[in-house]
């Protein structure tokens, strides 16, 4: 099954859970198989990932993960000027980075995972998220800024998400 890892990884980060990711990836693959006629030659990975992310956001909506549905324009922004401390970030362990990434709004998580983990081009990300390239570019800039901001926040006690 081509792009199985890509599909699962994207779902895992958008949904912030491994069990959900397995279910939704399976659902997405079934949908992709049934609608293969709708696939017009080109980038199969982008086509599949578009179905995966749509399934993910439908899942979030159905499960009333309300704050996840914030659109780009409504997303809260970190302070405009970054302090030298956040720019000169220290090294972070996997757990810290994972928590920061999961604390980002879903649309930021999605775009960062596609770019940094999946290595998609702006064009591919635009196709997958059905947004203009300009929006992708500015969202990516904001996502990175916010991730850095979260990484400099003090760690709350007992934080950490159970998967």
């Amino acid at each position: 099954m081509p792009h199985r890892d890509a599909a699962y990884n994207l779902a895992r980060w958008i949904l912030r859970g491994r069990a959900q990711a397995e279910d939704v990836t399976q659902e997405a693959f079934l949908r992709a198989y049934r609608s293969f006629g709708g696939f017009q030659s080109g980038n199969a990975r982008a086509w599949l990932l578009q179905i995966v992310r749509n399934c993910c956001f439908t899942w979030l909506q159905q499960n009333h993960v309300a704050e996840e549905m914030t659109e780009f324009d409504e997303l809260t922004m970190p302070p405009k000027t970054e302090n030298p401390e956040s720019l000169a970030m220290a090294s972070y362990d996997r757990e810290r980075l994972q928590r920061a990434l999961e604390d980002l709004p879903a649309h930021f998580r999605e775009i960062l995972v596609l770019r940094e983990l999946e290595g998609c081009s702006y064009k591919e990300i635009a196709a997958i998220t059905t947004r203009p390239i300009g929006t992708v570019m500015s969202a990516l800039a904001r996502a990175r800024q916010q991730l850095r901001f979260l990484l400099t926040e003090p760690v709350p006690k007992g934080a950490g998400r159970d998967l």
């Binding site: 199985r4 491994r18 397995e22 972070y92 362990d93 996997r94 980075l97 994972q98």
Partner: peptide, 8 residues
């Protein structure tokens, strides 16, 4: 941090 998670 190797955050990429492959399909189980």
């Amino acid at each position: 941090a190797q955050l990429y998670e492959r399909a189980p």
